[in-house]
């Protein structure tokens, strides 16, 4: 199975070398592609210096477009599966093989989940996760234990949709929409690490904004969109 590991990177100069060498070490069988999303730091220079496989946006378009560029590449080059793998070192490449096996088993979407076997800790962030889980349960009838996990693998059929649609960002509402459209998904227990360097974009106002968007999108706009 031809699998592509998509690494969106925006100003990840401090992380990118560690992330890519980790992938090369642990998953040498799979292709990877760094999508440099118009970084202003040395991300692109490091890619050139190390001879990585990468594409570069000349301007910053945001995470959704960066992941989509990866999907577009996967679509044009006939990949059977593609996984979004964050450029900040939170995801662990050792679980990619297990996730690929789930695609081979006929799933359209495989989610690297923190909470299949383990319980969700009680925190404000997890309250948000639970609320999104509930919203997805209401609209699709399916239980997705870790909807906000960014570690998602897609099969060929989903790659095509994600590559060509205009508004399917790497967010829980996209998963909900695809599942409502008949996509089969499974969750695999994975470990995630705290980001080692750089800054997370999650602060209070961003989080509230995010939750609002997810709720409106999953509970209301979902019915107007095509899955």
């Amino acid at each position: 199975m031809k699998t592509l590991i998509i690494i969106p990177a925006y100003n990840e100069g401090k992380n990118i070398e560690r992330v890519v060498s980790n992938i090369k070490e642990n998953c040498p069988r799979y292709d990877y592609l760094v999508v440099n999303d118009g970084s202003r730091d040395d991300t692109e220079a490091l890619c050139v210096k190390n001879g990585y496989h990468f594409v570069s946006h000349p301007v910053n378009l945001g995470l959704a477009a960066a992941v989509q560029t990866g999907m577009l590449y996967a679509y044009h080059n006939g990949y059977d599966a593609a996984i979004q793998f964050d450029g900040d070192g939170q995801h662990d490449p050792r679980f990619i093989e297990k996730m690929t096996a789930e695609i081979e088993n006929g799933n359209n979407i495989v989610i690297g989940s923190r909470f299949v076997d383990e319980k969700k800790p009680k925190s404000l962030r997890m309250l948000g996760s639970n609320l999104i889980q509930l919203a997805i349960k209401i609209t699709t009838g399916k239980t997705l234990k870790d909807p906000t996990s960014g570690m998602r693998m897609f099969d060929k059929k989903m790659i095509k949709k994600l590559a060509l649609a205009a508004d399917l960002g790497p967010e829980p509402d996209t998963v909900a929409l695809l599942v409502r459209g008949g996509a089969k998904f499974s969750e695999i227990q994975v470990e995630m690490h705290d980001r080692v360097a750089g800054e997370s974009y999650l602060n209070l106002s961003n989080s509230i904004n995010y939750m609002m968007r997810m709720f409106v999108s999953i509970l209301i706009l979902q019915w107007l969109r095509k899955g």
Binding site: V35, G51, H53, F54, V55, H57, Q68, T69, L72
Partner: peptide, 13 residues
Amino acid sequence: VQKYAIDNESKET
């Protein structure tokens, strides 16, 4: 931008 990026892909060396 996506087309430009993919057309100017840098292969692994």
